[in-house]
Design a protein around this nucleic acid. Structure first.
Length: 763
DNA sequence: GTAGGGTTAG
């Protein structure tokens, strides 16, 4: 019998609920039948377009078992695909889900944070009378909990018990308690705990941990202390328990109460052990209460525990963060007096909190006493990184210059660094940190100069530095210099990556240099580097925007010649461009050719064609395309319907447009503000103002807020039909909402008012 | 460290 084995440590890692593969647990080598069927199903369900009529699917359906369903679910990446497979499986005759397939689905939904389907899943389990092992129930409860579906978790728990689908054990209860505890509901938790006791279920560490958590979070210190005492007596207190104590107290800003609690623990002879001391010290520093951390630190030493550099590291770090530099420095000397050797981490923190640069250098020089050359380099790297991250790139730059002994008389830093300079010369990583820092704040030229220095000092730049420099040069449209660097890197024996090439490719595409782009692509082919879709598409879109759709077509054809197949995305863009310059036949040719070339037209590709046909007043052909896509198993989007609605409205078929609205709703999709605006506009133009107003009211009912364009459409429409008084009302409403009507709308209202000689209100 | 691009209203 396969039980879902959730390791106990899982309870501490609430967020990561991983699918439990009972197949794998049962038998590490799955029967080949299961593998074959599940691989086949995965491939069918991930293939687009998905077709219910796939003959293979029917064969699989007849032999479907829960083992396979579970294996498929665990093998699918997308929760949506998993969900549609799960639903499909539910409908296959002779097949019934079990608790493991439900859990595999729940695991997907929990990770994808899909509350609504998760709720239905929980209901489905109960309705289908699915038997659950106590472990499986626990797992499902945790999935519900991870989406904060506390009520649902409780309901499921009670329902499976009353329907005798499961006899919850301690583990099931522990899972429920943890969910309740995370929701902070103290009363419910106490109720369940009582119930658990009445049912004779044993308590363990994982029962009391959520209890402790809920009391801590609710500020019930007395009760928390009682639970803690019980746990301590039973030796259940671990690092997790301690961190709950510290973090929940600090969450409420109750650091002093937390400290109180610790002191009272001591009164109760619950002396802290070394691990606990360390945990609390870290916890207090984390909430910026170094004072309390220091008090504990002293207590710890008095209790005879030894302290080490890592504790000093935490405390010094805390003081530095609080900008209490004096205290940090005094801790540092105390540490050294005790003969504890400093480390790179401690010194970095101190150096980074020096406000004065001279001070900083002094600390670096001091580091030499403790560190060898290798460690000094680490220290420099760490300090430079810190400076860059703090936004003090300039300081980092100066420090590096000083290390190189750059003579600048005006700079006192250099002299102070003299004693250091002899020992450490900047190496590759140090240059990289500063060059990257300079690039990030847009100081490209400074970065280039430093790059030259780096080469001169005999360092060999790596591919990363080259890539970053080339990328920034390309972003600044400095193409010639980019090419120069590319050649340089090639000559020094560093092979460009596809990132290098695509930086250049992107620059050429932005420049609309199709020839240059094609030449580069030729070069890229030698390395097997694919040009990125986003850049080819960018070039195509830019050309199309200027009416050069034919050139864009040629560009894509040339890419094909160079044996790089452009993506369907680029083809959508170019087809749209062709429609826009009224090359309708050529666009349709492209539309028809695409499948023959092995592409799978998707929803957007269809949308572009539908839009093009509607704009060319060939609405019935557009309707045919809608039917065609549905037949192929594609699911039209709201945009698809919007495009057709617009087509009908503009071509005297408003009724069809209105019918389409119910179709959208019927298919459980949400019409958007564009849908409504088009319909209102269409109805107004057809003189059907009252229908337009009805749509307007519907919109409000489903909570879709009209925007500036919707108001404009309605106001203009009302004016055109002579309903000026109402137009003024909506105009006012619009202004109240802070939307600015445009001049044409005002003038429409004015004209209407004037024509009615209703001058006084036209102000 | 790279992608997720293409389609809709006055």
């Amino acid at each position: 019998m396969a039980l879902p084995r959730i390791s106990k440590t899982h309870q501490n890692h609430w967020k990561s609920i991983k699918p439990i593969n009972t197949n794998a647990l049962d038998d590490p080598s799955l029967p080949s039948e299961v593998t074959h069927i599940s691989d086949g199903l995965i491939s069918i369900f991930t293939k687009e377009p998905f077709s219910q009529d796939n003959p293979e699917l029917k064969i699989f359906a007849s032999r479907l078992t829960t083992k396979e369903v579970e294996s498929v679910l665990n093998g699918l990446k997308s929760w949506k695909v998993a969900h549609s497979f799960f639903t499909w499986a539910s409908h296959q005759g002779g097949y019934k889900h079990n608790c493991y397939t439900y859990n595999a689905m729940a695991s997907h939904l929990s990770r994808a944070r899909q509350n609504a389907p998760m709720k239905s899943l929980a209901m489905e389990i109960v309705n289908s009378n699915c038997y659950m092992t106590p472990g499986a129930l626990g797992f499902m409860i945790r999935c519900l909990g991870s989406l904060e579906l506390v009520e649902e978790a409780n309901m499921l728990f009670d329902q499976v018990r009353t329907k005798r689908l499961c006899v919850p054990n301690s583990y099931s209860y522990n899972c429920l308690l943890e969910v309740i505890s995370n929701s902070g509901s103290l009363e419910l938790l106490e109720k369940r705990l009582e119930e658990m006791r009445n049912f004779g279920r044993e308590f363990d560490k994982y029962t009391l941990t959520p209890v402790l958590k809920v009391y801590c979070n609710a500020g019930k210190f007395e009760k928390a202390l009682n639970v803690y005492t019980e746990m301590h007596e039973k030796r259940w207190v671990d690092a997790h328990v301690m961190s709950i104590l510290v973090s929940s107290f600090s969450k409420w800003g109750e650091v002093d109460k937390a400290f109180d609690l610790i002191e009272r623990m001591e009164d109760h002879k619950l002396g802290l052990n070394e691990k606990t001391f360390r945990l609390f010290i870290h916890g207090f520093v984390r909430v910026s209460r170094v004072d309390k951390a220091l008090q504990l630190f002293d207590k710890m030493r008095k209790s005879g525990f030894s302290v080490d550099v890592s504790l000093y590291d935490v405390l010094i770090g805390g003081f530095c963060k609080n900008r209490e530099i004096e205290k940090a420095l005094s801790m540092y000397s105390e540490m050294k007096e005790l003969g504890i050797r400093s480390n790179v981490g401690v010194l970095t923190k101190l150096i980074l909190s020096c406000s004065d640069q001279g001070e900083m250098i002094r600390m670096l020089v001091e580091g030499q006493e403790d560190f060898n050359e290798e460690e000094m380099l680490l220290l420099y790297a760490s300090v430079l990184n810190g400076l860059v991250d703090n936004g003090s790139v300039d300081k980092a730059y100066q420090l590096l210059q000083a290390m190189m002994g750059k003579d600048s008389d005006a700079d006192p830093v250099v002299n102070k660094l003299q004693p250091v300079k002899k020992k450490v010369r900047p190496t590759n990583p140090l240059f990289e940190i500063v060059i990257d820092g300079l690039l990030k704040i847009g100081k490209l030229d400074a970065a280039l100069i430093l790059f030259e220095d780096m080469m001169r000092s005999g360092c060999k730049p790596n591919v990363l530095i080259y890539n970053n420099l080339i990328d920034e040069l390309c972003k600044s449209n400095r193409l010639e210099e980019s090419y120069k660097l590319l050649r340089e890197m090639e000559q020094s024996g560093i092979e460009p990556t596809h990132f290098t090439h695509n930086s250049l490719f992107g620059c050429l595409c932005r420049r609309e240099d199709d020839q240059g782009a094609l030449n580069l692509v030729k070069e890229m082919r030698v390395f097997g580097h694919e040009p990125w879709i986003k850049y080819s598409t960018l070039l195509v879109k830019q050309l199309c925007k200027q009416g050069k759709a034919v050139e864009a077509c040629n560009f894509l054809d040339n890419m094909v010649e160079k044996s790089f197949l452009p993506s369907i995305v680029s083809y959508s863009a170019v087809m749209n461009g062709l429609f826009n310059i009224q090359e309708v036949d050529r666009a349709l040719q492209l539309f028809r050719d695409i499948s023959a070339r092995g592409y799978c037209p998707d929803v957007v590709f269809y949308n572009v064609a539908i839009n093009g046909l509607c704009k060319a007043k060939r609405v019935s052909e557009a309707e045919n395309l809608l039917n065609e896509m549905v037949m192929k198993g594609l699911v039209p989007s709201v945009v698809t319907y919007n495009l057709l609605i617009n087509g009908w409205c503009k071509n005297g078929d408003v009724d069809k447009a209105v019918t389409c609205l119910s179709r959208i709703v019927g298919e459980a999709r949400e019409p958007n503000v564009i849908t409504y605006t088009m319909l209102i506009g269409g109805l107004c133009n057809a003189g059907r103002i009252d229908d337009a107003l009805m749509i307007w009211n519907n919109m409000a009912k489903i909570g879709c807020a009209p925007n500036r364009i919707t108001f404009n459409t309605l106001v203009t429409g009302l004016c055109k039909c002579g309903r000026t008084a109402e137009a003024v009302v909506y105009l006012r409403e619009m202004e109240e909402k802070g939307m600015k009507p445009e001049i044409p709308v005002y003038s429409a209202v004015m004209c209407a008012l004037i024509s009615k000689l209703n001058l006084p209100s036209a102000t």
